[in-house]
Nucleic acid binder design. Structure first.
Length: 474
DNA sequence: GCATGATCATGC
DNA sequence: GCATGATCATGC
């Protein structure tokens, strides 16, 4: 007798839920009789052995194969159909982790399907291949644990069918359109995960040399796949897979039926031209007390958020940055980022470095204010931004120089109790530079040669940031 | 006025 | 206590 009805999603889910609490070794061990039959008749044994060998090398995705072969007993298909074809269900085995504070978060993106640059340009979202593969997924979440040596001993914690909720669909559709538009513009090689909110174009291939042709340009583009981004999957886990979690605050009403970015720009635009003081009055905030970070607070109030956290920004990995343009039409300060550890940076390569990942995966919301003649801050509006491909190549130069300076040994001169160094400065590159970012002189990290030195970070040059602000906001 | 070093303030 | 956003301070 069949253990589940392969044309009924609910039946598949019910059967799959019995996986909760099991490790992958449990799944294999409990599968004795059937498995050996399969191996004998299909020659699966050799294939399984190669799987085991691959997993020792840390090959990912193979845990999914264990569930497919040893629990559902279907052939692994690499064809374009959903895994459970009759039910239209795609199986995704994915990973979550427990943070120090006890919160759970997704450990990885969920890759949906490779992007075929030639066929995707003829698709619209709801008849696209990617929608076909993500509209109904069976998510099997296992807990990542650094202490567990054998990956097959990871334990499955949650199993659930998942359909992207209605309120996310306009945003996901808009993400899809942005990606496809870049391909149509012959810019597939400039795609970046930071271009979009929930659905991203993630690089997929052995290394940076895994490239493909694209239809409207001769420039080879990296292989990429559609994927739900990591932060989006964290949200899915905490709000749909695990019920009853505190729901947080949302910018969009469930029935608003708008893509996130469009809705945000619209809301903020309603206040453009108003002074900070006037916006305070509109929201009953005491301007005379002038709380710190007032500009950031106002941005959230305008978006209908009482606190300083919007669920949509969390799940799209959007960071809000306030920008103040001076009366002289210049931005006074450069833009800082998290500090880096000297000893870690020297062991990184650019393509896999922290800063590369941060810049290419993060999307920013610039909220722009400008000082008027009376020295009042006036709201100009907002824009979403992520670093353009060409500019990221400039950052790469600075990053590589920084690494070389650390390898050669940082040169430090002390003048008037200030330590001057030879990290790349702001006149050296149009896009970014390296500068201290610490609490004080004692707030240090160790250099590769053992000296302690004040924490530093990469900064985007103030002139560069200004050049990225849309004219309508200046 | 700009480049660069230094540090404050807030919130978790 | 620390990360991070924000801004000050100094010298050329």
């Amino acid at each position: 007798m069949e253990k589940y009805n392969k044309s009924d999603p609910k039946s598949i889910e019910k059967y799959a839920k019995k996986l909760v609490g099991k490790t992958f070794n449990d799944v294999i061990n409990e599968d004795d009789a059937v498995a050996s039959e399969v191996y004998e008749s299909d020659g699966f044994l050799s294939e399984y052995e190669s799987t085991a060998n691959a997993s020792k090398k840390g090959n990912k995705g193979r845990l999914g194969q264990v569930v497919e072969e040893h629990y559902f007993h279907y052939h692994i298909n690499s064809d374009q159909n959903p895994d459970f074809k009759e039910a239209g269900v795609e199986l995704k085995v994915t990973c979550y982790k427990k943070n120090k504070n006890g919160d759970l978060s997704a450990k990885e993106r969920v890759v949906i399907t490779m992007i075929d640059y030639y066929s995707v340009i003829n698709e619209t979202f709801y008849d696209s291949h990617v929608w076909d593969k993500c509209k109904l997924m069976l998510l099997i979440y296992y807990l990542y644990d650094k202490a567990v040596k054998d990956r097959y001993n990871y334990r499955i914690g949650y199993v659930s069918l998942f359909t992207p909720p209605k309120e996310d669909l306009p945003t996901i559709e808009s993400d899809f359109n942005k990606i496809v538009q870049k391909v149509r513009n012959g810019k597939a090689h400039e795609l970046s995960e930071g271009d979009t909110d929930y659905l991203g174009a993630v690089t997929k291939g052995a290394n940076a040399n895994s490239v493909r042709f694209q239809p409207f340009s001769d420039i080879p583009a990296k292989q990429r796949a559609f994927a739900f981004k990591e932060k989006y999957m964290t949200h899915v886990l905490n709000h749909y897979i695990i019920p009853n979690k505190d729901m947080g605050e949302y910018i969009l009403d469930e029935n608003e039926n708008k893509a996130l970015e469009e809705a945000v720009i619209e809301k903020v635009d309603k206040y453009s031209g108003m002074t900070e003081k006037e916006i305070c009055e509109a929201f009953d905030i005491d301007y005379e007390k002038k709380p710190k970070q007032l500009e950031a607070i106002l941005a959230y109030r305008i978006l209908g958020i009482k606190g300083n956290k919007a669920e949509e920004f969390e799940k799209a990995n959007i960071i809000v940055k306030t920008i103040r343009i001076g009366k002289n039409d210049k931005i006074k300060e450069s833009m800082s980022f998290p500090t880096f550890k000297f000893k870690e940076l020297v062991n990184e390569e650019w393509e896999t470095s922290d800063f590369f990942n941060y810049l290419s995966e993060t999307r920013f919301l610039f909220v722009v204010y400008k000082y008027n003649k009376n020295d009042e801050l006036v709201m100009k509006g907002c824009q979403f931004w992520n670093i353009p491909y060409d500019d990221l190549q400039e950052v790469k130069k600075v990053w590589i120089r920084t690494k070389q300076v650390l390898i050669d040994g940082l040169e430090v001169k002390v003048i008037n109790n200030k330590r001057y160094n030879n990290f790349p400065g702001s006149s050296e590159n149009p896009v970014c530079h390296v500068r201290p970012h610490a609490q004080n002189a004692q707030d240090t990290y160790e250099l590769p040669d053992g000296r302690m030195y004040p924490k530093q970070c990469f900064w985007l040059n103030n002139t560069y940031v200004l050049s990225q602000i849309q004219d309508r906001l200046k």
